[in-house]
């Protein structure tokens, strides 16, 4: 087991954001977390990568507890996180952004060059833009840069937070193709997605989050066919002729 969360609770002030999350990610898998806005998906990822302090519960990465390990140490251990909203350094060029991804690695120039080549192989677009400031890229290019940068750390586990956010439908498919490809090349992936249909089609297993709790977990294929999941996350909650919502008040 590469990653194991057991009854993890996280608070923002007095508010409990995660109310006992337990999940596992095995080596080689794509696992996805789906759920509505504010269900705690991003918080889960931030907690795993050490950005949010845990109130209680345990997190094990490669069998070792990482609950008190700061984010910058986790990168060295092989856990890489492409954050929601991409987190591109706007004032740095594409190359500099990518090199930041390898910040924690000890391998010298040759390693960085090799990783750069690999990322450019996946995203030829980034090679074209390599000396452009990150802030001037389009949304899709920024997303590629965010994923490429996370790969520069040479991760065993890659956390992706909403990679399809704000992208045109065509780009969405493209990004998901690349995610599948990265996984095929041997990187385990934990994926958080608003676009549940795509995510479930690409993932091996999935967890459904609701208000800080895991309410369902199954193979992705099973959830994709599940009626209640379909109703809740694959087509909007309220059907246009929902009887309970119709009619005037009173």
């Amino acid at each position: 087991m590469l990653l194991e969360l057991s009854d993890v609770r996280v608070h923002y002030g007095k508010v409990e954001a995660l109310r006992g999350i337990s999940l596992t990610v095995d080596e080689g898998e794509i696992v996805t977390l789906i759920g509505g806005n504010g269900a705690g998906k991003s918080t889960t990822l931030k907690t795993i990568s050490g950005l949010r302090p845990v109130t209680s519960g345990t997190i094990h990465f490669e069998g070792r507890s990482v609950v008190d390990t700061p984010a910058h140490k986790l990168v060295e251990r092989g856990l890489s996180h492409a954050p929601e909203g991409r987190g591109i350094f706007p004032g740095m060029t594409v190359v500099e952004n990518l090199e930041m991804g390898a910040y924690a690695r000890k391998g010298g120039r040759s390693m960085v060059t090799a990783e750069l080549d690999r990322v450019y192989g996946l995203f030829p677009r980034l090679l074209e833009r390599r000396s452009q400031p990150g802030g001037t890229l389009s949304g899709g290019e920024q997303q590629m840069l965010a994923i490429g940068r996370a790969l520069m750390a040479g991760p065993k586990l890659l956390l992706l937070d909403e990679p399809s956010m704000g992208l045109a439908p065509m780009l969405v498919a493209q990004i998901f193709d690349i995610i599948t490809e990265i996984n095929r090349q041997g990187t385990t992936i934990l994926l958080v997605e608003q676009n549940a249909a795509q995510a479930l089609r690409r993932a091996h297993r999935a967890y459904v989050l609701e208000t800080g709790r895991i309410v369902r977990s199954d193979t992705a294929a099973a959830l994709l066919d599940d009626e209640s999941v379909k109703a809740a996350y694959l087509g909007g909650d309220i059907s246009p002729d929902d009887p309970e919502a119709s009619g005037t008040p009173g």
Partner: peptide
């Protein structure tokens, strides 16, 4: 320098810099 890059990254986005392995 590498540390200088760390400084610039932290200035632009501290949380992401931490995710890159920068010790804030």
């Amino acid at each position: 320098s590498r540390l200088g890059r760390g400084i610039r990254a932290t200035a632009q986005d501290a949380e992401t810099a931490a995710l890159m392995g920068v010790n804030i």
